[in-house]
Computed example of a mutant assay.
Amino acid sequence: MSIASRIVVIGVDNEFRHDDGVGWAVIARLEERTADRPLPPGPVLETFVGDPGRLLGLREN
């Protein structure tokens, strides 16, 4: 039996709590990088604020 895995990179920040913004900055940099050096096929890049239930949907799409 084979279990398929999916890579999801999630930048977590909350602008209302005055976070440092590193999570979103990492996602932005990875998105910029893909123009010159594409990531391997399949990874999903997402930013996240608030509702943890949204994270569950990321692994299924």
Rank of each mutant, 00 (worst) to 15 (best):
D19Q: 00
G42E: 08
E32G: 10
N14W: 08
V26E: 10
D36P: 02
E46F: 08
H18Q: 15
T34H: 01
D36I: 04
G50Q: 06
A35K: 04
G23K: 04
V9H: 07
V22D: 09
T47I: 12
G11W: 02
F48E: 02
V8C: 12
A25L: 08
A25T: 13
S5I: 00
F48P: 00
S5T: 03
I10R: 09
R17P: 07
G21E: 07
V12I: 15
R37P: 02
I27D: 05
G57Y: 01
D19A: 05
A28P: 04
L55A: 09
E15K: 10
L56T: 03
V49F: 12
P43T: 09
P43Q: 09
D13W: 09
W24K: 14
A35G: 08
I7L: 15
R6K: 15
A28H: 13
A28Q: 14
V22W: 05
A28E: 15
V8W: 01
E46L: 11
S2Y: 02
L56R: 10
V49Q: 11
A4I: 02
R54D: 00
G57R: 01
H18A: 14
I27G: 05
G21S: 10
T47E: 14
T34F: 01
N14G: 08
A25R: 14
P40M: 02
L55D: 00
N14S: 13
D20N: 11
D20Y: 08
P52D: 13
E31T: 15
V9Y: 02
W24E: 14
G57K: 04
G57A: 03
L30Y: 02
V49R: 10
E60P: 01
L55T: 00
M1F: 02
N61E: 13
V44P: 01
I3P: 06
E60W: 04
F16D: 10
L39Q: 11
W24G: 15
R33H: 03
G23M: 05
S5A: 07
G42S: 10
P40F: 00
G11F: 08
R54W: 00
T47C: 13
G42Y: 08
I27F: 05
V26T: 13
S2E: 12
T34Q: 15
